[in-house]
Write a protein that binds this DNA or RNA. Sequence first.
DNA 1: CTCGTTGCAAAATGTTTGCAATGTA
DNA 2: TACATTGCAAACATTTTGCAACGAG
Lengths: 148, 148
Amino acid sequence: MKDYNSVFEEYLQVNNLKFTEQRKIILNAVFNNHNHFCVDTLFEQIQSNDSFQEYVSRATIYRTIPLLLEANLIKVSEKLSDKETYEHCYGHPKHAHLMCTICNRIIEEDEDRLMNKVINQIAKKNKFKITDFNICIKGECCDCQSKK
Amino acid sequence: MKDYNSVFEEYLQVNNLKFTEQRKIILNAVFNNHNHFCVDTLFEQIQSNDSFQEYVSRATIYRTIPLLLEANLIKVSEKLSDKETYEHCYGHPKHAHLMCTICNRIIEEDEDRLMNKVINQIAKKNKFKITDFNICIKGECCDCQSKK
DNA sequence: CTCGTTGCAAAATGTTTGCAATGTA
DNA sequence: TACATTGCAAACATTTTGCAACGAG
């Protein structure tokens, strides 16, 4: 499987766009950890990382996100705060999210077999061609329940 | 089962709030049809409806939505446009959404049995206490596939 | 060298809020 | 009558965009 750098590079090439230092920094910041992110958290993450030598403005982040979406490297994610939230998806298997409404933790769960069965069954019943799906469960995580 | 009017009225009473004409209009607009809505579509729907005699400002809609959410009459919904989107949920069984990315149609599917089984299984495995869940499938609907 | 890209600041868009007038219970 | 609510307009927050300087290939 290609790594995300190659995927982005090829996407840019095909579309006559350039693989600039800023785009490299944003791409790496996105894939460096596994957190869901919004423009602000990404901006702060980049600023606080000494190993990124160049400055990246918010405007550039705003302009890069549509490219990453289009290249299928990231996707819009269910949000906890009021800000638009993303997660990287390339190379990451489909999973359900368990979002704790008390501590805001997000647990990922790959219950592949049954999950896919349900999704496929629903799609088939409606003659629907799946390109993506999301399962999100909200409630209280194990820790928060026991703290009460 | 209580009707949505009583539910809202009781919620307001308990919280020392008043059941004003504007709140009645907004509530009825929300439950009058089954579309997902954002502030703007709701505003337009109210303006264009002759049977609503009073004017309702956007500010009032913005102030009423948190009340409807808190009363569990509506909930945040997966969005197609870039605007925050809601759907009424009171009295409406849990369902999956099939969102067509071509025509933007949203199909609702109540495949209760298996859907609930998966959700419960995932929650149980993580000792998670469910308060709500969402299943959203994106892709191409039957009609849009056959048009190609 | 040619165009695409960047950062900046201004503009556009969406949402919240202070306030004086009004309405509900 | 007391106090919550409304519409307005101003404030605020987020995102987009025009532009001149810059940079990748």
